[in-house]
Design a protein around this nucleic acid. Structure first.
Lengths: 211, 211, 211, 211
DNA sequence: GGATAAACGAGACGGTACGTCAGGTCTTGCG
DNA sequence: CGCAAGACCTGACGTACCGTCTCGTTTATCC
């Protein structure tokens, strides 16, 4: 009858629900409930029924829009991150590479130690480790964008002659971020600003031009 | 080595079951079933009921000796690792630090790409990320021992004057292992021997004495 | 007829499940499965899991609506009895008391010997003997209604001058029904029409007016 | 080795354990524990494990000598009854049939109302209703012997011309005992001495010679 | 502004797995 | 060899959630 759709409505003739009629109220409530429950109970004990109940929402409203508990949490967390970012997605570039990296790594350490972010991030990371599909999303939507910022900064540093020629920027970034993530995930030793600084120190020494 | 107790003696006076009467047959069957199921179905779809059924064992026999699915898998995997190790827990020390590290990292890459080890390790890592208690066990029993081998090798290198003085060996190890683990867990880019070599190259450049 | 409530109204505000949404199909299937299993296996070996499986129903659907195995069976049996009764709940009153009682007692004997009724009735009676709560239900819903019919017939007989004055009708009924039940439950001797007749004979002799 | 058995030992060459070596101490402890638990918890909640634990006995010692929980309880109760009887198994015969029956029925009422006997008797009766094998034992060992006493008394009364000729003594006994048992098992109305008296009155009226 | 249709809250449904409990069997010393 | 102790396999228990489905009840256009 009417495949003609209102402008703005994306539509596709499939069987998916009409997202233009989606309840914003419910979505927000689900985000909030999901984040709260994960923080309170941990991922494992958080259930879709629980989220629905806490959000004052029917279970079907969740199953209608998300394929899994992890997907709900992922979106909820992305939403949280977007809010928090507040548009500022920049990476400092003062010309002093070590200082800039130190600043960012210290901020990362703080974030990793902040319980508000820690619980859902750990949950998502863990789930992504085991579920490749979700892991891919995690990388694409959360990890890669932030790694790209590092890469860009390194390119700028290379242009300024602050890096050895031929360095693979991606690997260089991982030299910084990998150890940090390792310590965070494995909880081997405390994650401190000093550790961040030491990483910048050791890594840059290996990446700097050989004089 | 642990749990020193009089031979034949019934052991600690607590309320735990009498481990001297434990059925070795059942334990082995449970290990095998657990590893097989995790490899076949993944951790999430592996159930205690399934392990019990596959092992031809009553559920209670699992609940009697282990507190959780993760604990079963952990022991099963430790057992597997012990068998595989076969006593050789050495770390090469040819005098050429770069070559030795490259060798080990390449071997680690191979292990991480070996499906037999990958499934249970990922499962344990993921579970440990979310469950601090299990995570601590994972680190203590699996991760730390192998990191210690690196540290010892680095000490030897330092004694040979191949490292900058005052380097924190632990951080140095993480500089190598962190990025590898990161790529493995996050599946961002393929884990190859070349990557291992590049890591050794970049990291050692930062750790070497400044001449 | 029961549960008078506003049409369309959702009913009592308690926490019990919404009986208006109950699945008739499931209830019937559960009745049938319960009766079949009790007849096949006996009460003790009949399990809720078994009923659920045989009825093609989730266990929770049983736990949602019934508090116990006995309650399921009780309802199932009441339903069976209601069906069988088909509305005819009368007690013959031809004026000939002995004949009427003989007719009913013989019918009762037949029922007690009919395997379809015997298994569940025995099961309920046995359970009621040990569980006072269930026993009270058994008496209230199954036993008392039928005893009342006897009492009414005796009242009619008394009005016709066929009974000694001052006889306690309730006890009189028990004089007839008690021995029958005793023989049935205890399986001391066979339950026959002749036995029923003898009971009527002996008992009425004691209850008749002394001329 | 020794099929030769101590005299007095019944033996039969089957696979049953050697009863001459049986521990009297254990048997007594099991009786006591069984009766105590049935009285405290009721039959349903009494378990063989519980009996073994309370008796300070291994489970196997129970399984070795009894085929079922009901069998244990049956023996325990018979033992209790034997002790209580103390040899006096007589039935009064003063010549006054009504008085004698009233005396015995009143005593029976008292016994049925005595919690010490009630719990195990109900349990055994209930179990026997559902399990024909046990029921037969119950009748043979507990019920019939006492009914025989009634029968003998009635024979004496018949000889004295106090009964109508041709009365079936067995049915006559059931006319007295049936209603009592019915009221006791079904808990329809209170079991009192008055009820016992009324039963004797009504029943004897039907059994007496017609003058 | 009434009709109509989709999303919504609620929650019953058939299921799976949970972790516990008891059953009855088997094994291991002790006396 | 009977016994206590207790680990073993089995399987039912009652609970928690799963993901699907079906109720009425809002909304939110469309006629």
């Amino acid at each position: 009858m009417n495949d003609t759709q209102a402008p703005g409505g994306p539509a596709d003739g499939t069987k998916r629900p009409d997202s233009s009629r989606r309840s914003e109220r419910s979505r927000r409530a689900i985000y909030d409930a999901a984040l709260a429950l994960v923080a309170e109970l941990g991922y494992g004990r958080t259930t879709i029924e629980g989220i629905a109940a806490r959000a004052g929402v029917g279970k079907q409203t969740i199953y209608r829009w998300w394929p899994s508990k992890a997907a709900v949490l992922m979106e909820a967390f992305l939403d949280l991150a977007d809010q928090a970012a507040g548009g500022e997605t920049g990476f400092p570039d003062t010309g002093d590479l070590a200082a800039d990296l130190g600043l960012v790594l210290r901020a990362t350490v703080d974030e990793m130690n902040n319980p508000v972010y820690e619980a859902p991030t750990r949950a998502l990371a863990a789930e992504g480790i085991v579920d490749p599909e979700l892991g891919a999303q995690f990388v694409e939507k959360l990890l890669d964008p932030s790694l790209q910022l590092y890469v860009r900064r390194l390119r700028s540093a290379e242009a300024a002659g602050q890096l050895r020629a031929g360095i693979d920027h991606r690997i260089a970034v991982e030299l910084l971020v990998g150890p940090l993530t390792h310590r965070w995930l494995m909880r081997t030793l405390p994650l401190t600003h000093e550790y961040a600084d030491a990483l910048v120190d050791y890594a840059l020494a290996g990446l700097a031009p050989r004089d």
